[in-house]
């Protein structure tokens, strides 16, 4: 009995430490998610020549906190004949995969929660689970608009996952590894060695599929206010709605981070190696997590930019783009990449 307790205690500290790290990280991530909502409103406000929210706190920086408090104190209304358990479970189902995917993301050299061999596959599996939140919410709400939104979402996500998967196959072929750390190592060199250039069509296909996977404008027919009110979360109020909202932004951050990792070299610096030894400013110009964060922020900004720029796609156009354009483009480029790899074309594949 004593041995049993000892062996249990001995294994606790690393686990406890890891749990503490995760807890801190998730708090930071929630903070980022809250401020991406503010960034979205301010950026789109700027693009549409409006001011945006600027009343709460200095320059409107208290707005996300005010929003969160307001939603927390609202009543969560349960629709008639809704499936009580699934209705409450659905927001969590859309939130959890978006958080779980961060477990394998390297923030700097060998600096991640879990440095696993099949990291890329794990990411693909986690991003494909997000659809359950939407489907379960749509079904459990017992509302026709919610169900229509869920069906649209299921079809759209399954369609774009294929193009996304093929884009990842291209990355996998170029780097020869499923481990995210190795994928970044393989992109070392200069800006021109990052995979956005040799895999340019796959980079675009991945980014477009990423926008479609997160159900963001211009592919947001899942919510489609003008047709199905608010789609799958039309029946949600209070904290349930807030969780869906947060999950959407957590997914945006995740897809942006992944695009930065896979195609823009993650924590690699775009500047020459020698610049890192410049006194005082060297550590800013060298490799490090700040580079990864900067690239992620760029893609988050792109997501907001897309929303302010493009009108919503019609549903059949979305399907056409996914199946008839992105899928053939990725297939052809995988073939081209195979030829490039076979002949070991410099400077990328030698």
């Amino acid at each position: 009995m004593l041995e049993w307790a000892q062996s249990l205690l001995a294994s606790v500290p690393p686990l406890l430490l890891l749990t503490a790290y995760m807890f801190i990280f998730i708090l930071v991530l929630f903070g980022c998610v809250a401020y991406v909502t503010l960034a979205e409103r301010r950026v789109i406000g700027f693009m549409q020549v409006r001011v945006g929210p600027n009343r709460v706190g200095p320059r409107g920086f208290g707005q996300p906190i005010a929003d969160a408090l307001k939603l927390m104190f609202k009543e969560m209304i349960l629709p008639n004949d809704a499936d009580r358990f699934l209705f409450r479970l659905a927001p969590l189902l859309s939130m959890i995969p978006a958080l779980a995917a961060w477990a394998v993301i390297p923030f700097a050299e060998r600096w991640s929660f879990a440095d696993i061999n099949a990291g890329l596959l794990y990411l693909l599996a986690m991003t494909s689970l997000g659809v359950y939140g939407v489907i379960v919410a749509g079904w459990a709400s017992n509302s026709k608009y919610a169900l229509l939104g869920a069906l649209r979402s299921a079809a759209q996500i399954v369609a774009y996952e294929i193009a996304m998967g093929f884009a990842l196959v291209g990355v996998l072929m170029a780097s020869g590894s499923l481990n995210l750390g190795d994928i970044i190592e393989a992109q070392k060199g200069s800006v021109l060695h990052w995979y956005w250039l040799p895999l340019f069509p796959l980079f675009l296909a991945y980014l477009i599929s990423g926008v479609a996977e997160t159900n963001r404008a211009p592919f947001d027919v899942v919510e489609g206010e003008s047709e199905i009110v608010a789609g799958f979360h039309v029946e949600y109020s209070g904290m349930g709605f807030a969780l869906f909202f947060l999950a959407e932004y957590a997914n945006i951050i995740l897809i942006s981070a992944l695009t930065a990792l896979l195609f823009l070299g993650g924590w690699l610096s775009p500047f020459p190696e020698s610049w890192a030894s410049i006194p005082y400013i060297g550590f800013v110009l060298g490799h490090g997590p700040h580079m990864f964060i900067a690239k992620t922020c760029f893609f988050i900004f792109c997501f907001l930019w897309f929303r302010a720029t493009f009108p919503r796609y019609r549903y059949d156009q979305i399907m056409r783009l996914g199946w008839k354009i992105l899928l053939p483009v990725t297939l052809i480029w995988i073939f081209v990449e195979g030829v490039l790899l076979y002949f070991e074309v410099p400077p990328w594949f030698d």
């Binding site: 596959l121 494909s128 689970l129 489907i135």
Partner: peptide, 26 residues
């Protein structure tokens, strides 16, 4: 067997069961 485990989640949970649910809901 991490490859098989993750592939099971990716293929069956992420794709096959989504379509199953799609049909069952209708």
């Amino acid at each position: 067997a991490e490859f098989l485990g993750i592939t099971l989640v990716l293929v069956y949970v992420g794709a096959v069961m989504v379509l199953f649910l799609f049909v069952v809901m209708m």
